[in-house]
């Protein structure tokens, strides 16, 4: 009976994962391996192709899905889909404004900055998706509300980093619901510190992808990451630990069934949580550096909330 409960939990989390993260690993890998027929992604590999691909970057709609999605139904990659800048966050231009009227240098620099703002908008939307996924974890919404906030504050960038892995290979990453493939070399060619932002995620993702997890494994792992009882400032740790223990049992059982030949996969996966924390710490420091050094820097209010006093 206990195993049946654990299987039911993994099924529930997988269903929620598919519901809240429409670009699954299965879909992303199909796109990356060219198995989607004639709909191959637009490749951005230099500033010109970035300008040419602006319209796609701006697209908020998932190709092939409902033509009139509700505002709440948006896709799931931690990439570049421009949202609507929130009050106090706009003013520097969304991608839709275009580079008209700038010198060539200004054009490319403006483009870089707009690209960064698009990433922020998309990240904010992705935070909302992760929040909905977290709320679907049995018992999560019964936790102290302040602890729910803390778990999200500390866990969400780790989850977003994990969500990027299926979209990446050693050469680049999918963005905009899989409509764009941006090359790693192009991202490395951006000016500092922008060029430093995604490279650690590529390094992590290439290694992480060798574990060959599927979406059902990832759903459980994301829940484990969210339910970390050692986040700073938690008021009531014990119920969080109890929830995490249950999901951990479910994950362990699921990996044994789903990957019977993969030795120590459960242990290897848990070790990734240490790498994730370092990646997030470095990421936060980069954003804080940007905030100090970039004259026109403006952080999205939701990301400001998350990043404030975080590490």
């Amino acid at each position: 009976p206990e195993a049946a409960d654990l299987r039911a939990l993994s099924r529930l989390l997988y269903d929620s994962y598919v519901k809240h993260f429409p670009l699954t690993k299965a879909k992303a890998r199909a796109i990356l391996s060219g198995k989607t027929g004639d709909s191959s992604p637009f490749i951005i590999h230099d500033m010109k192709s970035l300008m040419d691909g602006e319209q796609l970057i701006n697209c908020k709609q998932i190709p092939g899905r409902d033509q009139h999605p509700s505002p709440a139904v948006l896709a799931d990659n931690y990439g570049v889909v421009a949202g609507h800048p929130a009050p106090g966050y706009g003013g520097l231009g969304g991608l839709s404004q275009g580079p008209i009227g700038l010198s060539h240098q200004g054009r490319t620099e403006g483009l870089e900055l707009r690209f960064f703002y698009s990433c922020q908008s998309r990240s904010a939307e992705a935070v909302r998706e992760v929040t909905e996924f977290a709320k679907s974890i049995p018992g999560f919404v019964d936790l102290d509300l302040n602890d729910q906030v803390t778990l999200l504050k500390y866990g969400v960038i780790e989850v977003l980093t994990l969500r990027m892995a299926p979209l990446m290979n050693k050469d680049g990453t999918l963005m905009s619901y899989g409509q764009i493939f941006m090359t790693r070399e192009f991202l490395k060619s951006l000016r500092k510190p922008f060029c430093q932002m995604l490279e650690p995620k590529f390094e992590f993702s290439v290694k992480f992808n060798t574990l060959e997890l599927d979406d059902s494994d990832l759903a459980l792992f994301l829940a484990v990451v969210i339910l970390s009882g050692d986040r700073p400032g938690l008021l009531n740790v014990r119920p969080i630990e109890r929830l995490q223990e249950t999901v951990l049992h479910s994950l362990e059982l699921h990996l044994k069934v789903n990957h019977p030949d993969s030795m120590q996969l459960f242990a290897k996966l848990l070790q990734k949580m240490t790498d994730l924390r370092q990646i997030v710490t470095d990421h936060v420091h980069l954003i804080q550096l940007l905030d100090k050094t970039e004259v026109d820097m403006c952080l999205h209010p939701l990301l400001q909330e998350i990043l404030k006093d975080l590490y």
Binding site: S121, R128, V141, L145, N146, V149, K153, H300, E305, I306
Partner: peptide, 20 residues
């Protein structure tokens, strides 16, 4: 609570599109 106003909103409103 004020420090994490949007996160609170996201957690408490399941469907309303928070102003992102």
């Amino acid at each position: 609570k004020e420090k994490h106003k949007i996160l609170h909103q996201l957690l408490q409103n399941s469907t309303s599109p928070v102003d992102l």
